[in-house]
Simulated scan of single mutants.
Amino acid sequence: MHGLSGTGLEPGFPAPWWAAAPLAEAATHADLPLRASELKRAGGYLEGRPREDFVAGRILVRVLAAGLLNRALPPRRRILPGELELTQYCPQCASTAHGTPSLGLPGAGDSFTLSYARTAGWLLLGLAPGTDRLGVDLADLDDRAFAPGDGGMLEDYAYAPEERAQLELLPEPERQRLRARWWALKEAVAKAGGEGLAGEGGIPAVAGKNRHPLLGSPGIRVLDLEPESIDSLGTMLPAHLVGSIVWAPTA
């Protein structure tokens, strides 16, 4: 397993490309329409913040992806967010209503692997060329689930025995921070593996001898996003967020 550094937008198209933005930024792109299928899915969320966050997230996925593509690809006509086609496919049940997302640029023949996450009012987006396997996630250091007491409850089911043993050696707040970092990595691994956290293998282990096989596969790359990391478009993550990007390039 190899680490990554830098923004992922240097010459030569190293991947993954990533970007983050507050969901509130979607309000500046209110003229960007969602597809009929997205509006239908939005209707399944509770009115208010859950539905608003879903809609804002879908808008920002296209906005950030267009920004990344316009910087990372060779010179061509400017790509507009509304041109991008966002699709999903679940290999387990063949559904297109959920599952692994991908991004297409109609008319250009280009397709990209996509992964995104919404946490604490922010969206994180990862993008890689072709059929690479990719997963991203964010975790909020201020979330009570990672705090002393409440965090212990999370450890009971979300962390493997070897992970819990490592956590027990740490003082707070180091323990709280590692809980959050590992949770983001677990989510990213589950997405990159195409299984989700509800997969047959359960919540993936990311440390110890029984860690998820994907983390030991040839060519795997993992990028840890620390608070105030700078994304590929120059935006800084806020001080309370950590994240993880797991990228498995195709041979």
Rank of each mutant, 00 (worst) to 15 (best):
R71E: 11
A72K: 10
L73F: 03
P74D: 05
P74M: 04
P75E: 09
R77C: 01
I79Q: 07
I79P: 07
I79Y: 04
L80A: 13
P81Q: 01
G82Y: 00
G82D: 09
G82Q: 07
G82E: 13
E83R: 06
E83Q: 14
L84H: 05
E85D: 15
E85R: 15
L86K: 05
L86W: 01
Q88P: 00
Q88A: 14
Y89G: 03
P91L: 01
C93V: 08
C93G: 09
C93L: 07
A94E: 06
S95E: 02
S95V: 05
A97V: 04
H98F: 03
H98L: 02
G99P: 08
T100N: 07
P101W: 11
S102G: 15
L103H: 10
L103C: 11
L103N: 09
G104C: 04
G104K: 02
L105G: 08
L105N: 06
L105I: 12
G107V: 07
A108E: 14
A108S: 14
G109I: 03
G109F: 04
S111A: 12
T113Q: 15
S115R: 12
S115W: 10
S115T: 12
S115E: 11
Y116K: 07
A117I: 00
R118L: 13
R118N: 07
A120D: 11
A120Y: 04
G121A: 11
G121Q: 12
L124T: 04
G126M: 12
L127A: 05
G130D: 06
G130H: 07
T131R: 15
R133M: 14
L134W: 11
